[in-house]
Every structure is written in C-alpha cells, then in structure tokens.
Design a protein around this nucleic acid. Structure first.
Lengths: 293, 293
DNA sequence: GCAATTCTCTGATTTTAGTCAGAGAATAAA
DNA sequence: TTTATTCTCTGACTAAAATCAGAGAATTGC
C-alpha cells in the first residue's frame, strides 16, 4: 500500500466530505453509531475540550454530552475538568479508545486504497494529482473576506505576522514606528477599514484602506500568509478593497511598496495599477502606485 | 451563473457522494427529511417503478413503502399500478411534487455555484477540469471484472455489441458463423471461461479464453464498449485473462485479430504480445499474436 | 460581593431511519 | 389448475440522532 497516495486520497476525502456530504456512513461507523465514531475521532490522541468538539462537529451541547456518557460507559473516553477553567471539561481517550480510533484510522486507509487499487500506476498518479488540484481550489473557494475590527485578536495576529515578514524581507529590517501610521482608529469607519481573509475562521490575510474624502484612498497592510499564496487571495483582497474604496466615494486608490515585495508589485501591475512618483515620504517605499477606479 | 461549469461540479458531486459519503444532508434536505428528498428526486419527472427505486437507493421494501405513503400524504406523489404487471406499482410526481423537485434542483445548482463563485475564471476552469479527471478515474476504479456465465443476458448483450462492431469495422463485414467458434460450452469451465467487466452491474466489456490443457490458451471475444474506452478496461481485462490462463495451467496465450482493430493491436503489442505466424485459419484474421506467461 | 454569563449536564420528548415477519394480490412455472 | 414466486404493503418494533427546557457549578464583569 503506497501511503503517499493513500494519504492524498484521504486528505481529499476529508475536504470533499466537509463540503459535499456527511461521513462514510457504514464504513467509518463499523459497529459503532456514526455520531460516536465521529466524536471519538475528533477527540484525537491529545484529547479535546468539549466545547471545541461541539463547535467542530456542529452538535448540540446535550447531544455531545450524551455521546460522551455513552463512550465513557464503554470505557473509551474519560472526561475531566480543565485545569484553567472549572466549567470547561476535557475529553481524553483511554487506551481502549485509542485502539478504537486506530481501527477507524486503518479502515480509512483501506477505503482510500480500495479506490486506487484497481487503477494502473499512471492512473493512480493522475487521480491523486487531480484530487490535490480539486482540494486546493475548493480550499480557495472557502476563503471569505470580511470587514474586521482592527483591534481584534485576529487583526493583531495578521499585523504581527505582516511586520515580522517585512522585517525579514526588507534590506534593513522594518520598524512600524518609522513607517507611516495606520492606527486602529484610522482603519475604522468612517476613517478607513480593515478586511481580513479567513479560512474556517482562521485569519490568513488582510488589507486596509485609509479614506481621505474624495481624495485618493490609501491602501495599507496588504498581506497574505505565505502558506496560502498562489490561491488568488491577494487578488481577491485587492478587488474587495477597491470595491470598498468606491463605496466610500474615492475614485483613486494609491499605495506605496518596498522593492523586496516582488510578488506584490507584480500583483499591482497585473491589476492595472500604474507606477507614479512618490506621493508621500514613506521611508521604506521604493515604488508608488495608483489606480483609477 | 455558468451552467456548463455548474453541471460539471454537480456531476462530480454525484460521484463523490456516491463513493465517499452521504448526501448533502441539511442542504438538499431543506425542510424535508433526507430520505424523502432522495426518493422524491429519484422518482424523477417521468415517474419510476417502486422496485427500481428500491434498487437504486438500496432501501428496504417496507421503508420505501412508508416513505411513499408519507409523500403521498403530503400530496407530492401518486402511486398507481403498472400497466404491464399488476404486482408492480409506479410512483409519479404530482404538480406539487414536481415543484418540490425543481426546488431541490435549483438548490443543487446554487450549491454548485457557491463553490465556483469565489474563484477567478481561470481557477474555475482548473477546478472543473480536475473534477472531471477525478470523476473519470473514480469511475474507472469502480469497474469490476468477474467470471460470468456465457449464456447470461449480460454475456449475450456483450457478444451482440461485439459482433455489431466487428461487422461495422471489418472491410467486408462480419458473420460469426464464418469465424472460429466460441460457443457457450467452450467458454465454460473447464473448457474455458468468460470475463465480464461491469460498472454498477451494467456490462461494458468482456474477454474469453478457450483452454487446451498445457497447449496455448486461446483469447477470444475481447471487447470494450466504445463509450468506456481510454479507461484502461481493456488492459485490465487482458491482465485478468492472463491470470486465469496461468491458473488453468497454460504457459502461453495466443490470439488472432483483424487489421481494422488498430487500438486492440496497439494494446496487445504494449502488453508484450509478439506477432507470430498464422496458427489457425480464421478467415477474418490478419495478425496472430502470442505471449509467454 | 453580587449579578450576569458560560459551560456542562439530566430528563423528557421527538423525528428520522431502518428492520423483521408476514398478509394479500398478481403473475409465472409446473 | 395448482403451486411457487414476485411485489407491495401493514403492523410492530428498534436504534440513532437529535431538540428543548432548565438545573447546577464555575467564572467574569462591575
């Protein structure tokens, strides 16, 4: 059994299942009810807080409680209070539970393999390649872009990663204090706004605007998580920002950028941004762009 | 909404759902229980016999009956006796049922579109292309090959299509009576055997062997439905036949073929068959091959 | 320190999904 | 014609998958 291929299929299945349908009914279920099997799986080797389980499986609190009671009765799970917060409880697998979970795991492997097995070597390669492509693009289509509060934890996280990356990539590092400001109040309506791109609630990109009435809007804090690049998130963020700028009454968007950010520069050019002379004294900038909306 | 793309995604979903998981639970279900929704969908605009529904959805007779009673109670379906056979009953949608089904239909469209909508034109193309590839190969992996009775309806069907194709493609047509025999008893153990390839029980290819003890086994009736070509079914049939020949004690497989069957000849060569002199007087043959097992 | 909130749990109940045994009508096989 | 078979249906039942209301502990906010 070629595990690399098997894992590709399973990874694909996970996504397809998430988007398209329910789980492998009888298959993963085996002897155990599907609900219990899913919960057992989701608890994982490390254990998990019950509220997380509820969230991930989108199940009612009462229902999860009952399922846990049943699994507990079968000696597969123990539930104990969390150390940090006495209200929160954690579920943890017993040895028997871990064994049960390993069984689910290997049945998943077998199922994945059963899809590949009848094919030729070449076909298996094509199938898994195509599956990876489908997965990649469905993932991209799950990414949402929404206006966010620049003081929120997600925003802080994006900014921190953004600054860290600039500091890494700029010739002489990056200190936000030296750069033109984009404080929280400047990125909150009506002064401006912040967009955050998310996949399953997790932030992975951002972009902001500072409005100046009818004068050109300024584009700031454009960032996409490196692990997510190539999925068109930057392009979508840019489009969404332009839309917002138009809504706010601006007819021009301007931005400045550093020569180290080659892929960003390519994106701006590709999206019809035109290089212009310096319109501010940003010390980290080498290029200034604008676009007529 | 681009229907061509939407339809590709839906077609893909159908397959993935069939192989990987259950249906789009709440989605397709809407307000109606999933079982009822599936049945409603399966009845289709034309109506369907109840036993067909049972077969297609793999549901218990009692269960289907109850679901139909419920749909009937809601005025969505009427059940009436079949014209041909008084035992068989047909389910047919009422106007309300048709409307309900149209609702399911458009929700499926919307769902499919919701996957594509966030993507760029180019990404949509890539996604649907990859989906088509996945579908094609999963289909291929669902094809089974099994020993079959050469007098069965499926075998007759394959032979009929095979002869028709030869008759169409050979320069001077084809008459089985003129050709070397491969009667049912010759293709039944221990004299020989017939393999049939099937997708969802439907036959779409065959291949047979005539054994002659330790002397070379003869390969006959090699055929794959034109709509299924390019999926490697021929290659798999050939491999399975060679396996069977080995099992039966043969060390060599021989076959003859007509020059019009170019793709078959290419397959034989590719599978290490070596062209040899005529070893029989088959009037329709131009090439004779053999392979050491 | 008190009120509001969060988190989990229990009890009561419902809906959905499915099974099993067998009855009754129609048809096919002998 | 008799007998066996096919097809659908009803009754009786079970298991799984929820949902709702609220209780009781712990924590947070003020």
């Amino acid at each position: 059994m070629e595990m690399a291929l098997v894992n590709r299929v399973r990874s694909f299945n996970r996504l397809v299942t998430e988007r398209v349908g329910a789980l492998n009914d009888h298959f993963l279920g085996g002897t155990r009810p599907l609900g219990e099997a899913r919960l057992l799986w989701e608890i994982g080797a490390e254990g998990a807080e019950i509220r997380q389980l509820r969230g991930r499986l989108a199940l009612d609190s009462a229902y999860v409680s009952r399922l846990l009671r049943s699994l507990e009765g079968q000696g597969l799970v123990v539930v104990e209070a969390s150390a940090h917060d006495g209200r929160v409880r954690r579920a943890r697998l017993t040895d028997a539970g871990r064994a049960e979970r390993a069984g689910l795991d290997s049945r998943s492997d077998e199922f994945a393999w059963s899809l590949l097995e009848p094919l030729t070597e070449r076909q298996r390669g094509s199938l898994t390649t195509a599956m990876a492509e489908v997965e990649r693009l469905l993932m991209a289509s799950m990414i949402t872009i929404e206006v966010a509060d620049p003081t929120s934890a997600d925003a802080e996280w994006c900014f921190a990663r953004y600054f860290a990356e600039l500091n890494r990539r700029f010739e002489f590092g990056f200190d936000p204090g030296q750069s033109i400001s984009a404080h929280a109040h400047e990125l909150t309506m009506p002064s401006g706004l912040l967009l955050i791109a998310r996949l399953r609630q997790e932030p992975l990109g951002c972009g902001a605007l500072k409005f100046h009435g009818k004068a050109p809007a300024e584009l700031k804090r454009m960032w996409v998580d490196p692990s997510t690049r190539g999925l068109g998130v930057g392009r979508r963020l840019l489009g969404a920002l332009e839309h917002q700028a138009r809504e706010a009454g601006a007819t021009v968007v301007r931005l400045e950028t550093n020569r180290a950010l080659t892929e960003a520069i390519a994106l701006y050019r590709d999206c019809a941004y035109r290089e212009i002379g310096a319109f501010n004294n940003e010390p980290y900038a080498h290029h200034w762009f604008e676009k007529q909306l």
